[in-house]
Design a protein around this nucleic acid. Structure first.
Length: 967
RNA sequence: GCUCAAGUGGCGGAAUUGGUAGACGCGCUGGAUUCAAAAUCCAGUUUCUUCGGAAGUGUGGGUUCGAUUCCCACCUUGAGUACCA
């Protein structure tokens, strides 16, 4: 009886489904363990062998934990809102819900055939109204919340309103917009309801704000930075402009410090934590206000704005019509300021530029606007800028400081303005050198003739009035104190993390539960959720440039009846327009891990029951790609912290441990066409000839890189191209060239897991994906190698099943049998715990090779061996387990216990080294003392030969390890 | 530019606190079996070699009795990114 994997795998997959073998219990005596994969977006192309890598790893771990006695939650679902389905809908008119459903079916079939131990009773789909009802609900909670910096948590907006009506806002310490004005309780109580709404919006955790976006008028949509190439859209090459749009934003910046501190409490890789730290970008320093020295034009301007009379000449000398606020990490260098630089987009630029400089400044602004943010960033070498003609006043010396604009200052960071200290900052230094601006030296004993001095540690300040002689720390403290005395600055911590834009001008996403009364956003009552996506006849923006939801006919809100209404019934009295934007992809993925905690059938009227939330807490192990390092993984942490603050969940972090699996790369194959001919040269023949490499489908190439020419010629897609081609062979075969590239359809190197499962089986696929290399590393796929692990499974089968049936009996295990088993238990357990799955596979191979050589038939050895292998190759393990007479699934069989006593040795094959190089080995008893070892080794003929008569200087003996002879 | 990760046979990779470099597998070579093929099994496979050995883990230094492993400098590749004041 040989190993019929197709039959075995189908049987056990059915058994698991029929018996709900992997259903997790919400009430259990066992300790819980929650293993989660980043859920997939169900694309039309289906899975390729790169996708399941992480799922296989997490499945092995989940199955291992079940063997170890845990109640394991291992769910799966779909991130089913997204752009590709919408794009497909635009092209074909097919409703995204339909294509999404079809794609999910394909995904499910592909996932099932790999034998994952998912609990499908808890499946989640973000595009399902029963799911996004709760995404909308969370959005409403965010709207109804503000962040109290005193209690350091989010609170219900009511607590803010009551503060306002009793004390005004001067005592409120909140995360809010920069432009809130101070008001008293009396003011507040006399404001109109609309004015109050406007103010509250500046405090809410989700709020409407004008945001600058990349708008492509031709496509009628907003584009991400990476969808823009050389200033035009990647698709279609249409022009893109920067445009202000009113959009929903999430006040994630309120959580910057907690997101940063929380990193110390979770078990993620250092590199991942580092990228989140960089993204949050905390810097400690001071904000400093510089007064702009007035010119007559400026004052005229201001006066004109305020309808005042003409300006007297004394006003020109004393008044400061404008202020520039900067953020600096080096307030200690304030006396080194020799100019200021504003971002070209800074709002003051147009107001302070003098008549003489106007033309230059405008030309410069236009030139920078053409360059994308990416280009400005990439180009570090070119120094450019223009003088505005205006001067600021130094807060202490009152000296005039020229104000420049330069594109090395970014509008989006800090205040969009810097105080330039050329002696202490290399970019300022380069800028000053380039434009011949003075570089005053404020450092004691430092030469700045070649470059700036930015070393904080060894700073001694000079030429700086009250800061002279101080070090960085002291001077910083003093400078901030003096600035505060002047009312021109204060200590400040700045975060790079910006609030996240939450609106998308798309169809296939969650609708906002929002309608507008006189342009002010109102939340729809929670009892009316979900607000279901409306039907539209086309998935494109409207002619007026409104998002696709602008095409819906029934997309208004009847506030009286609490239901959707026709657009034509909008009267702005009872029936109001609804929000036309939808939510971004990360909305649904920011909380889905909580939804899995409840079986779909029991979800009832909550996103998950309190009991379920309390039992499962958070994800113990999360596996997914590193491309989500700063998106999904930061937003989820933000939402979870928010939900904790408001008491909806009781954990501070969603994912305790996180592992990034590496990408599986494709191994592309090339044939070489001789230029201008229809001749293809085998790889070894191309030396001098001028050839053109052409991708061919990898399925026509065997393990020895030989091309199946007939197969290629009969290919449905490309056969025609090669029909009349002449293939020039070497040694009777055509050898292709190979190159490792990203696995992609366009490179014809995609390998489909379906084909692998059919030819070799799911167990082979699972083992091979793990065998390729370390989980976290990128590695090339080469189907040829799978014969190795497939051969191993056949050997494993043969160890149990012979020609006449079962080979296993109750024979007493030999010493060698026990030694093999126990060293395998030890190694495999260590490997799984450290996620080193590739090395366990070799360990299994070694074990099976040894037991086969030992002719082992003992059940006492072969039965526990199956449990070790079952997380990796569950189907064959179940089959052999049942053939050994077990009538329950192997999946909860206890993991074998390692016993040290079977590995104890009496002798050791010592490596004998000379000057650190091993020259021969010598078998010696382990209980031999150092002296005895030395005696035996020194007397050995090979030692004498090695020494060639020299006397060794030293003999190092580490009992049980090595002998090293020096000299 | 900056940050992080990684460089070991023809290929994927192993070597867990510094202690026998190349486990395991692919591929390749030779052999057995077969009419033949597939499958299977056996032996070999880092390089050089005067067949005694010698060299060898990106490069150059260093620490050590001993370094793939630790330290310094550099080179290359990959990922991320933000000229961050």
């Amino acid at each position: 009886m040989s190993y019929h994997f197709n039959e075995i795998e189908a049987r056990w997959q059915k058994y698991w489904a029929d018996n709900q073998t992997f259903k997790a219990e919400n009430n259990s005596e066992k300790p819980k363990y929650y293993v989660l994969d980043m859920f997939p977006y169900p694309s039309g192309a289906g899975l390729h062998v790169g996708h399941p890598l992480g799922y296989i790893a997490s499945d092995i771990y989940a199955r291992y934990k079940r063997h170890k006695g845990f109640n394991v939650l291992h769910p799966q679902g779909y991130d089913s809102f997204g752009l590709p389905a919408e794009q497909y809908a635009i092209q074909t008119g097919q409703h995204p819900a339909i294509t999404t459903e079809t794609n999910i079916k394909t995904y499910r079939r592909q996932l099932d055939q790999i034998g994952f131990s998912f609990d499908w009773s808890r499946e989640v789909r973000t595009s399902n109204p029963e799911y996004y009802k709760w995404t909308q609900w969370i959005f409403i909670q965010l709207f109804e919340s503000w962040y109290n910096n005193d209690s350091n948590k989010a609170e219900h907006i009511d607590s803010l309103i009551s503060k306002f009506s009793s004390e005004g806002n001067s005592t409120v310490n909140a995360a809010c917009d920069d432009d809130v004005e101070t008001f008293t309780a009396h003011d507040w109580n006399n404001y109109s309801s609309e004015a109050q709404q406007d103010i509250l919006l500046k405090y809410r955790l989700t709020y409407l704000a004008e945001t600058e976006v990349n708008w492509c008028p031709a496509l009628g949509t907003v584009l991400a930075n990476d969808e823009i190439v050389n200033g035009v859209s990647e698709r279609g090459g249409h022009p893109v402009i920067r445009k202000k749009m009113t959009q929903w934003s999430m006040r994630i910046s309120a959580y910057a410090e907690r997101l940063l501190q929380g990193l110390d409490t979770i078990d993620w890789t250092d590199s991942l934590k580092e990228s989140q730290r960089n993204w949050i970008g905390k810097s400690v320093g001071a904000s400093v206000t510089f007064n702009v020295k007035a010119t007559r034009e400026m004052l005229n301007h201001v006066q004109h704005d305020e309808n005042h009379d003409a300006v007297s000449s004394s006003a020109v000398e004393t008044s400061h019509p404008y202020k520039i606020e900067v953020f600096t990490t080096r307030p200690d260098t304030i006396f080194g300021v020799s100019f200021m630089t504003l971002a070209p987009e800074h709002e003051l630029v147009s107001k302070i530029t003098t008549e003489a400089q106007k033309a230059d400044v405008e030309a410069y602004i236009q030139a920078t606007a053409k360059r994308s943010e990416r280009e400005r960033m990439a180009d570090v070498k070119t120094i450019s800028g223009v003088f505005t003609g205006a001067y600021a006043e130094h807060p202490f010396t009152k000296e005039p400081i020229p104000i420049w604009i330069g594109d090395y200052v970014l509008a989006g960071y800090g205040t969009g303005a810097v105080m330039s200290v050329p002696c202490g900052d290399q970019r300022d230094y380069d800028f000053a050198k380039h434009f011949n601006i003075p570089i005053p030296n404020i450092f004691e004993g430092v030469d700045i003739s070649e470059e700036a001095f930015s070393d904080k540690e060894n700073t001694v300040i000079a030429n700086s009035d009250f800061l002279n002689g101080m070090n960085y720390k002291k001077a910083t403290k003093r400078a901030i104190y003096e600035l505060e005395q002047l009312g021109q600055g204060e200590g400040k911590t700045n975060y790079r993390l910006r609030d996240a834009v939450f609106s998308r001008q798309r169809y296939w996403g969650e609708p906002f539960p929002v309608y507008y009364v006189n342009g002010k956003p109102q939340m729809i009552g929670q009892q009316h959720l979900p607000i279901v996506l409306p039907e539209v006849e086309k998935y494109l923006p409207t002619e007026e440039g409104e998002p696709p939801l602008g095409r819906a006919d029934i997309w208004a809100w009847d506030a009286l009846k609490g239901e959707l209404a026709k657009n034509e019934d909008i009267d702005n009295v009872n029936v109001f327009p609804l929000e036309l934007n939808t939510m971004p992809g990360w909305a649904g993925s920011s909380w889905y891990f909580f939804r899995y905690m409840e079986e779909a059938a029991n979800r009832g009227d909550a996103f998950a029951s309190e009991d379920a939330l309390n039992y499962w807490e958070n994800v113990d192990l999360y596996i997914g790609g590193s491309e989500h390092a700063t998106g999904h993984l930061l937003y989820s942490r933000f939402w979870v912290k928010f939900m904790k603050d408001r008491g909806f969940v009781n954990v501070e972090e969603p994912f305790k441990k996180l592992i990034n699996q590496g990408m599986i790369l494709g191994t592309s194959a090339f044939v070489y066409r001789e230029d201008g001919t229809n001749k293809y040269l085998s790889k070894g023949l191309i030396s001098d000839n001028s050839v053109q490499p052409i991708h061919v489908k990898v399925q026509y190439v065997n393990a020895s890189d030989e091309l199946d020419i007939e197969g290629l010629k009969q290919d449905g897609e490309f056969g025609e191209d090669f029909k009349d081609a002449e293939f020039i062979l070497e040694d009777g075969v055509y050898k292709v060239g190979r190159e490792v590239e990203k696995m992609s359809k366009s490179k014809y190197n995609v390998v489909n897991p379906d084909a692998i499962c059919e030819q070799y089986g799911a167990d082979s696929l699972r083992l091979y994906e793990m065998f390729l290399g370390p989980l976290e590393q990128a590695k090339p796929w080469n189907t040829a190698g799978i014969t190795g692990v497939h051969g191993f499974l056949k050997k494993l089968w043969k160890l149990y099943i012979g020609g006449n049936g079962l080979n296993v009996n109750d024979a007493e295990p030999s010493k060698d049998n026990l030694k093999t088993l126990h060293k395998t238990i030890k190694k495999v357990e260590e490997d799984i715990e450290s996620f080193s799955f590739n090395t366990s596979v070799s360990t299994f191979m070694i074990a099976v090779n040894e037991l086969t050589a030992q002719k082992c038939t003992s059940k006492a050895i072969l039965e526990p061996l199956l449990v070790l292998i079952s997380p990796y190759a569950p189907h064959i393990a179940e089959e052999l387990w049942s053939r050994l007479g077990n009538d329950t699934s192997i999946s909860t069989a206890p993991f074998p216990k390692f016993e040290e006593k079977h590995l104890i040795e009496s002798s050791k094959n010592y490596p004998i080294s000379f000057n650190g190089k091993m020259r021969f080995t010598l078998e010696l008893p382990l209980d031999m003392t150092k002296d005895e070892i030395e005696k035996v080794v020194m007397a050995h003929e090979k030692t004498i030969a090695q020494l060639e008569g020299r006397t060794p200087k030293k003999v190092i003996i580490v009992p049980g390890k090595i002998v090293n002879i020096v000299g």
